[in-house]
Design a protein around this nucleic acid. Structure first.
Length: 489
RNA sequence: CGGGCGGUGGCUCAGUCCGGGAGAGCGCCUGGUUUGGGACCAGGAGAUCGGCGGUUCGAAUCCGCCCCGCCCGACCA
């Protein structure tokens, strides 16, 4: 286990999940299942997303959808099934994906199909092959489209949310008249992804370009956001690709320019997936379970009533009813837990589910016209008067969001290193994890050497516009970039 | 896809070696007593023992094939 994980805060109340420090992978699966985010299904590698997990995804969807709509993107829907002949047109692309494509080869009484149909692993081919028809003139450009859908990739080793055979995502595909405009689009979306990760999920990310070997099959270049999980491993959390004219040439997507010359479009594609939900778990969780950033938390504050008997219950109920709707009307996602369990059970349940704020309301609080506020990070109790409660909760949620981000940032800072030589980097990754920055010449072979000598450490990304100091950690040639290395999911 | 381990009530697991009664704790239901960090008492429900086939008078247990999960490697958002 990495020494990067903070030791558990005491006391520990949770009994149903493996400790993070004991076995991070089991901890993760336990949290996902016990917090009711998702569960296994009868089909290998496929998952059931439960309402609590889906609600998080819906918040992410809403946030991102609003962003892209604001810059003129529109949602479309393309078929799940893609004819093999479509998929096959871009050579590098096919080669990259065929190992994990699932095929439909027969259908009911129709029997065997003349042409087998791929279940989309991604939709560049069907979209490229279709949208070309709608593009004739430079006046038709840009086409800025997106779709929210599921895709299937027949993965070998699967894990809930992180790598499943079927997952939910958005895939954006855009078509431009100039290379510059397409490249700007790639950066615009990357900035949206950064905001989703940092501002909404409270997960700090490295924003940069992928190496040649790590880029998307068929892309000229790929950019990504890379997050650090609490076991020190990297998670690629979103990608944005520039295709140049690779796809438009393969799929015949061209337009007539101002000067009446026929030209191929410059295209991009970009995606984020339900993987982000898994990232959320691993970036913020602790031994008690989930810790959710308020902006995507299905429940932002939970009220736990405390009473002795039916009369006391009624007493508390009347009190809570005087203000609960005011809180909700102010936009706080408030849940009042009137279930039969004892307070202690409720505390643990809602901590496991990562609810940022808890309001304990007992007889003493009714008398004092207050609630007891406990936050998921510090677990400290303090009284909050009912007067102005909605505003105070909103402030607390905003603060929680920031604290969570800063905690993650601090964690990343403590687990980020800087090395000048391969020997240092290899020594570090023998036991250690985290991100390691190092100067790099940019050549595949040096990258491959690092991967080999460390047993799997790869480049995550780099800032292409920032020139590197010094010499390549492997070959000693002048460095081109300062690149982040890490083990990844 | 290779190597290893596992699948028994909702959950965690015993039982499998050595064939014959399907079990425990937790959870669930009912009643009572409780309620500021996972209470207690009494009663009760709940199982295709992962699936299919075989051996046997008889299979959770032995044999074969398959499915799912976990760990370790090669491939990936």
């Amino acid at each position: 286990m990495a020494d990067t994980i903070e030791s558990t805060q005491t006391p520990t109340f949770v009994r149903e999940i493996t400790k993070m420090s004991e076995d991070f992978d089991r901890w993760y699966t336990d949290v996902v299942r016990k917090a009711e985010l998702a569960d296994y299904s009868p089909v290998r590698g496929c998952m059931v997303v439960r309402p609590y997990g889906y609600a998080i995804w819906e918040h992410i969807q809403r946030a991102f959808d609003d962003m892209i709509k604001s810059s003129g993107h529109e949602n479309w829907y393309f078929p799940l099934l893609i004819p093999e002949s479509f998929l096959a047109r871009e050579a590098e692309h096919v080669e990259g994906f065929t190992p994990e494509v699932a095929w439909v080869t027969e259908a009911g009484k129709h029997g065997r199909l003349e042409e087998r149909l791929a279940i989309r692993p991604t939709s560049e081919s069907i979209i490229g092959g279709t949208v070309g028809r709608y593009i004739q003139s430079h006046r038709d450009l840009p086409v800025l489209l997106n779709q929210w859908c599921n895709v299937v990739r027949w993965e070998m080793r699967t894990r809930l949310f992180l790598r499943t055979a079927e997952f939910l995502w958005q895939e954006g595909h855009t078509f431009h008249a100039t290379a510059q405009e397409a490249m700007d689009e790639v950066d615009l979306i990357l900035e949206y992804y950064r905001r989703i990760a940092e501002d909404w999920l409270a997960i700090p990310v490295l924003v940069g370009r992928k190496s040649e070997t790590e880029k998307f099959a068929g892309a000229v270049y790929s950019k990504s956001i890379e997050a650090m999980m609490r076991d020190g491993l990297a998670l690629q959390a979103g990608t944005s690709h520039y295709f140049g004219q690779n796809f438009s040439q393969a799929y015949g997507i061209s337009f007539t320019a101002h000067d009446n010359r026929r030209e191929y479009c410059y295209t991009t594609s970009w995606g984020i997936s339900t993987r982000l939900v898994g990232g959320l778990v691993m970036a913020h969780g602790d031994d008690a379970g989930l810790v959710l950033p308020p902006r995507v938390a299905p429940v932002q504050a939970v009220v736990v009533p405390i009473f002795r008997d039916a009369e006391g219950r009624e007493h508390v109920r009347r009190f809570v009813e005087t203000w609960q709707d005011l809180i909700r009307d102010a936009g706080v996602r408030l849940r009042v837990d009137w279930s039969e369990e004892r307070p202690g059970e409720k505390f643990n349940r809602w901590e496991l589910k990562g609810v940022p704020l808890r309001l304990e309301v007992g007889p003493r609080d009714v008398e004092a016209n207050q609630v007891m506020l406990v936050d998921r990070l510090s677990r400290e109790r303090r009284p909050l008067p009912v007067a102005g409660l909605a505003d105070r909760l909103q402030e607390e949620l905003d603060r929680f969001q920031i604290r969570l981000f800063e905690r993650a940032l601090e964690f990343r800072r403590r687990n980020t290193y800087e090395f000048a030589t391969l020997a240092e980097l290899v020594a570090h990754f023998r036991e250690g994890t985290g991100f390691a920055w190092a100067p790099w010449c940019g050549r595949d072979e040096c990258e491959a050497r690092v991967k080999e000598e460390t047993g799997g450490v790869t480049t995550r990304n780099f800032e292409p516009d920032v020139p590197a100091q010094g010499t390549c950690l492997v070959c000693g040639r002048p460095a081109r970039w300062r690149v982040a290395f890490g083990r990844s999911y």
